[in-house]
């Protein structure tokens, strides 16, 4: 198996992984680092359950080649609560406003929303919807998710 060694920042920590070059970022996160918050809902970039933030941008980790992560900074759902364990405002808003149902899309949904809010503190509903258009959800009809992101933006 052709392997590659990559060093990057994962939720603030410097890490190194030696994994097959053919692996994706998602597989590396889940299997190498046991961060299983990002999910594989489709494996081909069509559902967004695997969304993580790379250098400030939301990406589908399921189609992100692991060698490309060298030197970059990755933030996953596991890394957004603060050091004292206080939930990120998005996490809290999702619980408060029922933005979570089965929860399978939730990690990706929150990471897409975080990528938006990190750059835009006062998004319009359309901007919120655009930011999560690549995150499919069967449970919620998106209504309370969009509301929750709006609530978190105000925090």
């Amino acid at each position: 198996m052709k392997k590659v060694s990559v060093s990057f920042t994962l939720n603030g920590d410097p890490v190194t992984a030696e994994v097959p070059a053919a692996w994706t970022l998602l597989r590396t996160l889940r299997e190498n680092f046991e961060f299983t918050g990002a999910k594989e809902g489709c494996g081909v970039g069509e559902c967004g359950a695997c969304t993580v933030i790379v250098d400030g941008d939301a990406v589908n980790s399921c189609i992100f080649p692991i060698p490309e992560i060298e030197g970059k900074s990755v933030v996953t759902i596991e890394g957004i609560a603060d050091k004292d364990g206080n939930l990120h405002p998005l996490q809290k808003a999702f619980l408060d406003n029922n933005g979570v149902q089965c929860g399978f899309c939730t990690s990706g949904m929150i990471m897409s929303a975080k990528a938006l809010l990190d750059k835009n503190h006062n998004p319009t509903e359309d901007e919120i919807r655009t930011s999560i258009a690549g995150n499919l959800c069967r449970c919620t009809g998106y209504v309370q998710i969009v509301e929750a992101i709006g609530m978190a933006a105000k925090k």
Partner: peptide, 11 residues
């Protein structure tokens, strides 16, 4: 709130 399901928002 669904706080009892906190694991779903923390991965």
């Amino acid at each position: 709130p669904r706080t009892i399901e906190i694991d779903k928002v923390t991965g």
